[in-house]
Design a protein around this nucleic acid. Structure first.
Lengths: 230, 230
DNA sequence: GCGGTTTCATATGTTTTTCACGGAGCATAG
DNA sequence: CTATGCTCCGTGAAAAACATATGAAACCGC
């Protein structure tokens, strides 16, 4: 189905690189590869891929730096980036997400999971590129109507406070994407973040409670943040 | 937020042109430019923008002429035009408005003011495009006749001041939609926003009182704004 | 001066944040 | 595999901050 979508893999381990290339090629993606951060950036600049798979542990310029650069240039900022990280590198994951990475996946991972993530991210970016800025968000049995400021869950209308509403809008607008607490705070307070991480927890709890069964869709990602399950 | 609205700037001063381009691009508008009246018209014809920023002082064909032409052709007449004029060119301003320009702004101006004007004009044109020209609005036991400036609630005729009338028109024109106080202020003052949020509250209170029972249809959405119940 | 409109001060109810603590998840060592 | 220790998260309650309604005063344009 993906007719000619191109993916750039930046990874220095030869074995993993080949495995990824094989799997992605079989799914019909046009695959390019780079083994260092510098080469990766060069490849992005010379011809923008539709998605970048980026290992965080790279010789020389590391993945975080590459991510920051990609997301920093207006020209390439819209290209989705999925980070590959070793387990336990949670602080790196957090930093990566804050630098604008779109998702992450921890090694070791199954090809199936990777494919699912890639497709989710690509679908989202496609929708955004089309400019379908819908004021009506729907995900996991929850609808969020931004224009009316109304939320429905499980057929029932749910009454949320302003903050709860913003929080849900954010999470539900990009299902499956993990948001760090800092990102959530910034989104809710429009840039002025003078608030403890803990307050996000409290909002999440109360949101979960108000959403009833559908509240289970809001998942905690330990050490990282929260996400809305699709 | 403006997802793909395009703006055409017609301006011969290179510096100002770049400043405008930069600011507008940053707000998310697709910007095109032209340096002469002739080029401007050509650009409008080849692909109609959503708004034209038009300098009045242009080499060759001047801004008034361009404006007249745009507003003269049925095809382009609906495109809003904001004129840029030097201070003191008042007779030109008057003529421009007579020719159908939608607003004007005198140089020098602050980017913020310009943005506010642009947004106000775009919003207005959007509303008109949506055909909210209907002069008779009816919702929740209240009728608003824009043509006669009359309001009825619960069978009784209600006497409103100009501001109250505009406020009610706005809210009732899109039942269930929540309007922020800023949106209300901009709508009522047509772009010139130099008023406290609190003053909206006062208008709402007095409107509610005058509407009697039907006043309950105006709901407060805490932390956000007001809406007219459907 | 006179409606009409905005600002101000205040009172009240709600929301949001903080805090403190207990429990859960996870990694490592044994 | 279990124990142990560590960090991170959930949660209730209290404190702090905030938003709105409202009456009255100031302001404005005619």
């Amino acid at each position: 189905m993906p007719s000619e979508l191109s993916i750039l893999i930046v990874e220095d381990e030869q074995d993993l690189l080949e495995l990824l290339r094989y799997n992605l090629a079989r799914e019909g993606y046009a695959v390019r590869t780079a083994a260092t951060g510098e080469d990766g950036l060069k490849a992005v600049r010379s011809e923008a891929p539709d998605l970048v798979l980026l290992d965080l542990m790279l010789p020389g310029m590391d993945g975080l730096e590459v991510c920051r650069t990609i997301k920093g240039r207006p020209h390439t900022a819209e290209i989705p980036v999925i980070m590959l990280t070793a387990k336990g590198e949670e602080s790196d994951i957090v930093r990566g997400l804050e630098l604008g990475a779109d998702d992450y996946i921890t090694k070791p991972f199954s090809p199936r999971v990777l494919m699912a993530r890639i497709q989710a991210v690509l679908r989202r970016s496609e929708r955004e590129a089309e400019g379908v800025e819908t004021s009506l968000i729907e995900a996991g049995g929850v609808t969020v109507d931004r224009e009316r400021h109304e939320v429905h869950a499980g057929g029932e209308r749910v009454d949320l406070t302003a903050t709860e509403f913003k929080l849900l809008s954010l999470l539900a607008s990009k299902p499956a994407r993990v948001f760090t607490r800092q990102q959530i705070i910034e989104a809710i307070h429009e840039g002025f973040a003078a608030v403890t991480d803990r307050s996000v927890d409290v909002q999440v709890v109360s949101l979960r409670r108000k959403l009833g069964t559908a509240g289970k869709n809001i998942e905690t990602v330990r050490g990282v943040g929260y996400r809305f399950r699709d």
